[in-house]
């Protein structure tokens, strides 16, 4: 079963087409990473899933319901920009948000979460006394405190130091273990690679990637060899090796993009005849590379 089913959804704001015939599925129980450059329609899509915005056309089913209410108690939502009442005390604020989600034991759960994220000492402080990172954690608690079945996070880790980012990542993974489906958007390709079962990428309102990291890497696939020879290296010679399609000279080392059916062992043995091999590494294209290939300055239709 899918937690989120988006079918041929289009949304435009005036002249600007924000989301263009988007179709994607988020299977229940998975962590789905939603990537794409700024302004590509990620937030709009998440807002449509939340029913804060309505699609111009197409269908969205969330948790199996087509006409679910926007304010669904089974969905937790962390918007991209943090919104908290500045004058309220941290625990009162979280209890208010939890109550709004229909949570029964709000106070106890808020206390638990504050402890988990190391904010217990701040429970009675007003929100505007918190640092940026702390208020982000508070906002995260607001999204998860009512035990949602589906958790939608818009850029949850941006602006956090590694320690706090890890704290939130662990919390997300723990929630998934308890059965929550998690859909989050991010700019951080490493986070997506590290955490997500499935990754979808939108670019200019359209879906350009969808699947597991492996399937995406296979699809974008020609593997890359990173090599370094001792002494001066003739880049032209590297290009003539069997199966090498393209050479990318990085100065001290070179990247060789090889054909799909090429044998890297063959390349290695030919390389050894050219000189002493100091480095030979088989690298799969990183999500970052794929992202840049699609949306970077050298992208074909840019």
């Amino acid at each position: 079963m899918n937690a989120v089913d988006i079918e041929q959804v289009t949304k435009s704001f005036g002249e600007h087409m924000a989301v263009d015939r988007l179709t994607l599925q988020v299977p229940a129980g998975s962590i789905y990473g939603f990537i794409g450059p700024n302004g590509s329609g990620k937030t709009t899509t998440l807002r449509m899933i939340m029913r804060i915005l309505h699609p111009d056309s197409g269908e969205i089913r969330v948790l199996g319901e087509q006409n679910f209410a926007a304010a669904n108690d089974r969905i937790g939502y962390l918007p991209e920009e943090r919104g908290l009442y500045k004058k309220m005390k941290v625990d009162d604020l979280l209890v208010f948000f939890a109550d709004l989600k229909g949570c029964r034991d709000s106070r106890a759960r808020v206390r638990e979460w504050l402890e988990t994220l190391g904010l217990s000492d701040w429970a009675r402080k007003p929100v505007d006394a918190l640092s940026k990172g702390m208020s982000q954690k508070v906002q995260f608690i607001a999204a998860v405190v009512a035990r949602p079945d589906l958790l939608i996070l818009d850029e949850p880790f941006s602006g956090l130091d590694p320690v706090n980012a890890n704290l939130l990542k662990d919390a997300v993974i723990e929630l998934r273990r308890q059965g929550t489906t998690i859909l989050f958007s991010t700019h951080d390709m490493e986070v997506a690679e590290e955490m997500c079962d499935l990754i979808g990428m939108v670019f200019r309102g359209r879906k350009v990637l969808d699947g597991t990291l492996e399937s995406i890497q296979d699809e974008y696939g020609s593997d890359v060899l990173r090599v370094r020879l001792e002494g001066e290296t003739d880049v032209r010679e590297l290009g003539q090796l069997t199966g090498v399609q393209q050479v990318n000279d990085l100065g001290r080392s070179q990247e060789l993009r090889i054909a799909r059916d090429a044998d890297s062992q063959q390349v290695l043995s030919e390389l050894m005849s050219l000189g002493r091999v100091r480095q030979f590494e088989l690298v799969r294209p990183s999500l970052r590379d794929i992202f840049m290939r699609i949306a970077g300055p050298e992208a074909p239709d840019r």
Partner: peptide, 19 residues
């Protein structure tokens, strides 16, 4: 203030605008 502080967006995830 709720609108510019994006609190509305959080609230609208829990409660319909009319309510």
């Amino acid at each position: 203030e709720e609108k510019m502080g994006r609190i509305s967006e959080v609230l609208l995830g829990s409660i319909p605008p009319f309510e």
